[in-house]
């Protein structure tokens, strides 16, 4: 302090990190809730179509899966994809527009916000959206009595983790995308296959071994595994592995994304 005073340094107290993260989160929250009906209603409606179309229609031709009716198996599965997609959209198209078109990030980091606050706040908001989406789907499928275990109230937390994980991956993708149309490769090439091969609409155990092993590397597989365990109140050992995978994946891609976006945003 004395040294500083000698150099003519003034005393300044920037807001603490939690306050900065919250302010970034709050900016996104504010923008999102401006169109509450158009943004908030779809997650409640979508699972209805899914359950009716796939569950009732296809379900008649499917037998029991691990002792459960197909519609129950599917109901636990459909909580997962909206968490992935909402976070992926937010951190690809959303992030790209804020970064390149609206220049919102430049405005934000001119205030008392670091690049880390900006990107971690962004991930936390994507996680929050995913939490809300899985909550919405859980409400709907529970209303139909399709969720056997009360432990399922924890599903939105898995939704939050799923959101963080895909925010990290999506920001990483965004960090090197120069043309907004290139996100189509990410959605069609990576997210859509994940939707089909992560144990959401059918169990992975009957797949040929190479596919089954490949599926274990997909992040969504672990979200689906966790989500289904909570819905059925079963807790096999692999849950620890699922959790560890998600934590590690989020940390690695989050760090890479921040490192690369930092280079892109700071000149």
């Amino acid at each position: 302090m004395n040294d500083e005073a000698k150099n003519g340094t003034i005393a300044v107290t920037p807001p603490p990190v939690y306050s900065r993260l919250f302010s970034v989160w709050y900016r996104h929250f504010r923008v999102y809730t401006k169109n509450l009906v158009s943004n908030g209603l779809p997650p409640f409606i979508e699972p209805l179509f899914f359950l009716a179309g796939v569950g009732l229609g296809l379900g008649n031709y499917v037998g029991l899966i691990d002792g459960a009716e197909y519609i129950n198996f599917l109901a636990a599965g459909v909580i997962v994809p909206p968490a992935m997609f909402t976070s992926a959209y937010e951190c690809t198209f959303g992030t790209f527009i804020r970064l390149e078109f609206d220049k919102v990030y430049d405005g934000m980091i001119s205030a008392s916000i670091t690049i880390y606050d900006l990107l971690i706040g962004e991930m936390l908001f994507a996680g929050t959206k995913s939490l809300f989406f899985s909550f919405a789907v859980l409400t709907v499928v529970s209303a139909f009595g399709l969720i056997p275990s009360p432990v399922a109230v924890l599903c939105p937390l898995v939704g939050f983790m799923t959101g963080l994980m895909f925010a990290a991956l999506s920001l990483f993708i965004t960090s090197f995308v120069k043309n907004i149309n290139h996100f189509n490769f990410y959605f069609t090439g990576l997210l859509t296959p994940m939707f089909f091969f992560s144990g959401i609409i059918f169990p992975l155990k009957d797949l040929p071994a190479p596919l089954r092993i490949a599926a274990e590397f997909l992040p969504l597989t672990h979200s689906a595994s966790l989500m289904r365990s909570l819905c059925f109140g079963r807790f096999p050992v692999r849950l620890a592995f699922d959790l560890a995978y998600m934590a590690l994946f989020t940390a690695v891609f989050g760090a890479l994304a921040i490192r690369m976006l930092k280079k892109r945003i700071l000149q």
Binding site: V31, D106, G107, S110
Partner: peptide, 12 residues
């Protein structure tokens, strides 16, 4: 900071 480019938050 008043930047050269307009970077107001158009969504607000």
């Amino acid at each position: 900071i008043v930047p050269q480019d307009d970077n107001l938050d158009v969504e607000l």
